[in-house]
């Protein structure tokens, strides 16, 4: 009986790590296996010894959880804007910044890395995320509509008249935009286009997502009439686009037909593990010192900044 359980657990942990891609046999799995072994190595290192002792941030360094698949937030060469913000904060804390990389998408950072003690902070989570302790917010921004400037569309809310001129619209799966599109009546007719952005890859049990860069290029080359994204996902690509693009922050929260409020603007904070109050205090103190440097990085990125709800 035990060995059944053990066997299944093994399968389970392998697969949950990669959402189904783990156990594939064949050439396609090579890259995944590398990612997986990294993950296991990190987690295993942390799992040794007693939890309380090991899951504390070591002195003198700030271990920052980072995904190689998190562009433009995190990028392996350190040029992701969150990588840069993290380094500024670590410096202000008097700690040496250490980026702990994984090839898994960022969405897994808390569960598979922060919680297992492989690293100590995750940048850019929603303020108040219940899985973690969050710092004071260090910026606030929102979802944006992106259109080609030469189209003359000025969409800045989900009831906008100009939204009726939109036939194809790119967005990110699981986002508030997906919820709101269902309210507009655009969702069903647009779905085939949306799936074409991921080459019809099934979303079952794997994290399938459209990159911000892809969304911007779809609008720039005229394939999509518009795109919706969280501003930091697309800001640098909009800024760098050779085709002039218009990016408008969605200025009202959305409401569903049943009256449910769908927020479109969010405070972004730095996450530490539950209970790691010392580290959070250290981060809050550092944030006060380096706010101008952080804002400069965000502005350089092209992110429209709103006033955080502090």
């Amino acid at each position: 009986m035990n060995s059944i359980e053990r066997d299944r657990t093994t399968v389970s942990s392998t697969t949950s790590g990669q959402f189904g891609l783990g156990p594939l046999i064949g050439a396609a799995s090579t890259a995944i296996c590398v990612a997986l072994s990294t993950g296991i190595a990190l987690a295993a290192g942390a799992a040794e010894g007693t939890e309380a002792a090991e899951l504390r941030a070591p002195d003198g360094v700030l271990r920052i959880c980072a995904s190689t698949k998190g562009a433009p937030y995190t990028m392996k060469d350190g040029s992701g804007f969150e990588n840069r913000v993290a380094v500024v904060i670590a410096d202000a804390m008097g700690r040496k910044p250490e980026l702990v990389w994984t090839d898994k998408p960022s969405i897994f950072l808390v569960r598979d890395f922060l919680d297992k003690g492989a690293c100590d902070v995750v940048m850019g989570l929603d303020d108040g995320d219940p899985r973690v302790l969050t710092s004071k917010p260090y910026y606030r921004t929102g979802y944006v509509f992106i259109t080609r400037t030469d189209r003359g569309l000025e969409i800045d809310n989900w009831s906008d008249e100009d939204l009726r001129k939109v036939k194809t619209i790119g967005y990110q799966f699981h986002s508030p935009a997906e919820v709101m599109l269902k309210q507009t009546g655009l969702y069903e007719d647009n779905l085939i286009y949306q799936y074409s952005l991921v080459n019809f890859t099934d979303r079952r049990n794997q994290f399938t997502q459209v990159s911000g860069e892809r969304l911007v290029s779809e609008v720039a080359n005229g394939t999509a009439d518009a795109a919706v994204a969280f501003a930091p996902d697309v800001a640098r690509y909009v800024k760098n686009s050779s085709t002039p693009l218009t990016m408008k922050v969605i200025d009202q929260n959305g409401l569903t037909a049943s009256g449910e409020l769908i927020p479109q603007q969010f405070d972004q904070s730095i996450a530490v593990r539950q209970g790691d109050t010392d580290l959070r205090e250290e981060i809050d103190a550092a944030l006060l010192k380096v706010r101008p440097q952080i804002e400069a990085i965000l502005e350089e990125e092209g992110i429209p900044l709103l006033q955080p709800n502090t």
Binding site: R8, V11, S12, T15, S16, F19, G20, S106, I107, F108, V110, R111, G124, L125, D126, D129, R131, Y143, Q172, H174, S175, P176, R204, N205, Q206, F207, F230, I262, P263, F266, Q268
Partner: peptide, 24 residues
């Protein structure tokens, strides 16, 4: 099969609902 659902919130109101399927 086992069907283990899970939800991973991430940033800006995004969340991913998944399930781990094992067949035997």
């Amino acid at each position: 099969m086992d069907w283990e659902p899970f939800m991973l919130p991430y940033r800006a109101g995004q969340f991913f609902v998944g399930a781990t399927l094992n067949m035997y």
